[in-house]
Design a protein around this nucleic acid. Structure first.
Length: 838
RNA sequence: GCUCGGGUGGCGGAACUGGUAUACGCGCAACACUUAAAAUGUUGUCUAUUUCAUAGAUGCGGGUUCGAUUCCCGCCCCGAGCACCA
């Protein structure tokens, strides 16, 4: 109460006012009655459920937290690293609204980055659900994948350590001890540790678990690894090392097979090409790579086509020796294949339409010894820096081969792009995008959608918070508190300390906890968890519309009149918290007919924070807080208001600068002194009349578009003009005072009264500007020669091209540049510019 | 790594739809008023040069155009969001 009072005082001190009749307080039982009412509606619609899954637990605050309450895996309030702990809790099914929350973003007039944040947070991902059978078991391993097209490339499956399936498979797991240990180790790792170690993959094979590939029926191994997350998708993945970086890293570490099923294609796909497959070597020496000269300024990687019966290694070894002469090398990583189409008419072609499957290998040169007698196919070879070689190859017919070098440079060996299918039976040759659905169908899976958005952990084990209005009855189970009994108030209590056991402090108040079941009148206990701080703020804007209504949270008639909120201003930190929760509740209230709009806030703006003069967030920590009381005392409330308006764009963070503030004070002093020039009857010059009308227009528009800084700037310009006048008409001055009054209400009221007005200036209407007096009868025209400004001339408004031209050419500064030259072209834009091209 | 913003004087920042870049304010300098200071006013203040002028500057490099802070392509830097999301 003390804080509210103080805050109101400060607000009033700087001349801001609100309709305090509508004031609300989310902690007032009269208000939270309706917060509880909304919860009951959610409960009745099955959107609130009890769960005891592991959730984020802050050991310092001793309470569970929602995902949205974390920052980098730490508690947003105290910065403590959260743990995963199974706690009985109430959860809201915000996920059921994920699609609508995403879809309806499109029509909102919100800052792009806020929409983007919400989009990321919701994290919609389309793919397929597939399953793998486990031999000698009824269990199936379900996986979610966005790449069902790569199903033939699966060489193992991985379960999240926390996946329940691991427990069900226990009888078959021969190395249970090892597996159990790994699960334990994962559990104690905090979320941050788990992601921090992302480079090095770890895991344990589930020995004895025989998994069958759904199509090929091949037996593949199963692993658990913490690179698979329990709470996303199905908590299990099919691993395709050839087409996923993470699977590749894991496969390399545990020596698992890598099977390529999608390859990139180059060139246009031809009908009836001749096939001639080749194998190519990326021979590395330090940061350099060897290219061979194919003649005609064409370079390529060494290598060539297979001879009868040769496998990749044999063909490659032979080709390297033949083309480069090097004899001692080791063939290392397979770099994947590509398919390259060569048309007849290409530079280095022998006259047939040809397709080549090009397989690449990384080759290590052991020493630079060459064969004594050169082979007849030997080519001139040359070492290049790898990134240089990429550029050279890209200019040749062999451009596709640059990809192999790029893979080494990027250190990424899996291919995640588009292409055509290979090694996939009858799906070979088709486009991988097309294969997604076809292979899913063939494997008996289904296309599905997953979200990153987690359901909302809605209960807290704190005292402060709205009690969740539910009753646990021994016979009837969970029963809602009857609506007529709302609000369910918090009991008075001595100790607010959290218990730390995962139970709220309320659980210790037996008088409050023990109650009767509203259904069977038998023994029952109250729910002791409370709601998070977000609950009351998720709908408060609706209560402003009808703050005193005790029959409904808002009457439909009133809601129809006011809603939705036209302009909502808040900090950017609300992007993935309050603004998601409020949208969710609003949509729910829409579904049950309480509100008439799908979205709560039509337009959103993020105000930029005023930072300390050191550029840091104001706070005790840095001792850089600017106290408004002091500022008002020193320079006045109006100066503070003008300065804050003028300092910069509304949405931008700006450092406070007491030094710059004097400009605003000087401006107001000037305005004050202008009173001395005011004369009752005076005809202002055309300049003054024009600028007055322009300024009225601009300030009005700037206020609407939140550009207070340019509004103030234009008023300063006008003031400067008035200052240069001997006399000013009272009418002009008073019109100006009217438009200044929202920025500097105190001084303007004073001037208004001094000049003989009886009523307050705030009651005055916004002045109208005269459309006919916005533009001068003469305009300045910029004269350019070859696009360079050479002079400006003054001509009557709306002068025709001919008149402007002759006037411009008479101008000395222009004539100088045009003299003796031929004018090729003239560009004329009315009232703006004339440009001679010579 | 992906996505979204942004980069303009010594500083805060302005510039409509491609049409005089640097408005307005701060700071700084000189001058006027004053015994002096403050306050106020006047003038100047992007850079270089040969300073009545010319040339070059809106993160860097290209392009389109008579003309680009504005549009297109490639890069660099800063801020924000997400991040082993299968």
């Amino acid at each position: 109460k003390i804080n509210v009072k103080r805050y109101k005082e400060q607000i009033s001190m700087i001349g801001l006012n609100y309709d305090w009749d509508r004031e609300i307080n989310t902690t007032d039982p009269k208000y939270y009655k309706w917060t509880q009412w909304i919860f009951l509606q959610l409960f009745k619609k099955g959107l609130a459920f009890e769960s005891s899954e592991p959730i984020n637990w802050c050991p310092s605050c001793k309470t569970g937290l929602a995902n949205e309450d974390l920052e980098d895996g730490k508690c947003e309030r105290c910065g403590t690293a959260v743990e995963k702990k199974p706690i009985r809790q109430w959860v809201l099914k915000i996920r059921d609204y994920a699609d609508r929350l995403l879809e309806d973003l499109k029509d909102l007039n919100w800052p792009e980055h806020v929409k983007e944040s919400q989009k990321n947070w919701i994290g919609k991902s389309e793919g397929a659900k597939l399953w793998f059978n486990v031999a000698n078991s009824d269990e199936k391993i379900y996986v979610f994948t966005t790449r069902p097209d790569t199903l033939y490339g699966v060489t193992y499956v991985v379960l999240a350590p926390e996946n329940k399936l691991v427990q069900s498979l226990k009888p078959q797991i021969k190395n249970w001890k090892e597996v159990e240990e790994y699960i334990k180790k994962t559990k104690i790792k905090s979320e941050i540790e788990r992601t921090a170690e992302s480079k090095e993959k770890t895991g344990v094979r589930l020995e004895g678990v025989i998994v069958k590939h759904p199509i090929t029926k091949e037996i593949i191994p199963a692993y658990i690894s913490d690179y698979v997350l329990g709470h996303y998708g199905t908590g299990a993945v099919m691993a395709v090392p050839a087409h996923d970086d993470r699977d590749y890293a894991f496969a390399k570490k545990y020596n698992l097979p890598i099977k390529e099923v999608v390859i990139e294609t180059f060139g246009e796909i031809l009908s009836e090409p001749t096939r001639r497959d080749v194998v190519k070597a990326v021979i590395i020496k330090g940061s350099k790579v060897l290219l061979v000269n194919e003649g005609d300024e064409q370079y390529s990687l060494p290598g060539g086509s297979y001879e009868l019966g040769e496998n990749d290694n044999e063909a490659l070894s032979r080709e390297i020796i033949e083309e480069t002469g090097y004899e001692n090398f080791k063939i290392n990583d397979y770099l994947g294949s590509i398919e390259r189409f060569y048309r007849k008419d290409m530079k280095n072609n022998t006259g047939e339409n040809r397709v080549r499957r090009v397989a690449g290998y990384k080759v290590e040169l052991l020493n630079e010894e060459k064969a004594k007698i050169p082979y007849k196919y030997i080519l001139e070879s040359k070492w290049f820096e790898m990134n240089e070689a990429v550029k050279i190859l890209e200019k040749t017919d062999y451009n596709a081969e640059a990809l192999f070098i790029q893979k080494i440079l990027d250190k990424i060996y899996s291919y995640t792009g588009k292409g055509i299918m290979i090694n996939s039976n009858h799906f070979d040759g088709i486009d991988n995008e097309k294969a997604k659905k076809e292979i899913t169908d063939y494997a008996g899976g289904e296309m599905t959608t997953t979200y990153k958005l987690q359901n909302w952990v809605f209960s807290r084990q704190r005292y402060w918070g709205e009690p969740i209005p539910l009753i646990h009855c021994e016979k009837c189970g969970v029963v809602p508190v009857p609506e007529k009994d709302l609000p369910l108030k918090l009991p008075k209590i001595k100790s607010y300390e959290p218990t730390g056991t995962g139970e709220s402090p309320l659980s210790a108040i037996s008088k409050w906890v023990n109650t009767k079941c509203p259904v069977c009148k038998g023994k029952a206990k109250r729910e002791t968890n409370t709601m998070p701080q977000w609950a009351g703020s998720s709908w408060y804007y609706l209560r402003y519309m009808d703050s005193k209504n005790n029959k409904a949270l808002v009457s439909p008639k009133v809601e129809k009149y006011w809603a939705p909120v036209d302009m909502y201003v808040g900090g950017t930190e609300h992007a993935t918290r309050h603004l998601i929760y409020a949208r969710f509740w609003h949509k729910f209230l829409f579904d049950i007919g309480v509100v008439s709009t799908k979205e709560p806030f039509k337009q959103l703006k993020n105000q930029g924070m005023v930072l300390g003069s050191d550029g840091r967030k104001m706070g005790k920590r840095w001792g850089n807080v600017v106290n408004p009381d002091e500022v008002v005392k020193n320079v006045g409330a109006d100066t503070l208001r003008v300065y804050e308006s003028f300092m910069g764009p509304f949405e931008q963070e700006i450092s406070w600068s007491t030094d710059s503030m004097v400009g605003s004070r000087r401006f107001l002093d000037k305005v004050w002194r202008l009173q001395d020039k005011v004369v009752n009857k005076h005809v202002d010059s055309e300049n003054v009349i024009l600028l007055l009308n322009q300024t009225i227009k601009k300030v009005g528009e700037d206020i609407e578009s939140f550009n207070a800084n340019t509004a103030v700037s234009s008023m300063m310009i006008f003031t400067n003009l008035l200052e240069s006048q001997e006399k000013i008409s009272k009418n002009t001055y008073l019109n100006f005072i009217k438009i200044l009054s929202p920025f500097a209400p105190h001084i303007c009221e004073e001037i208004w009264e001094t000049l003989g007005n009886k009523k307050l200036i705030v009651l005055e209407k916004w002045p109208k500007y005269d459309e006919t007096k916005l533009v001068s009868s003469k305009v300045k025209i910029v004269v350019q020669v070859n696009g360079k400004v050479r002079s400006t001339i003054e001509v009557p408004l709306d002068s025709q091209q001919n008149d402007v031209e002759s006037a411009a050419l008479k101008n000395e500064a222009v004539a100088k540049w045009v003299e003796g030259k031929k004018i090729i072209k003239k560009i004329f834009i009315k009232n703006r510019i004339i440009n001679f091209v010579v």
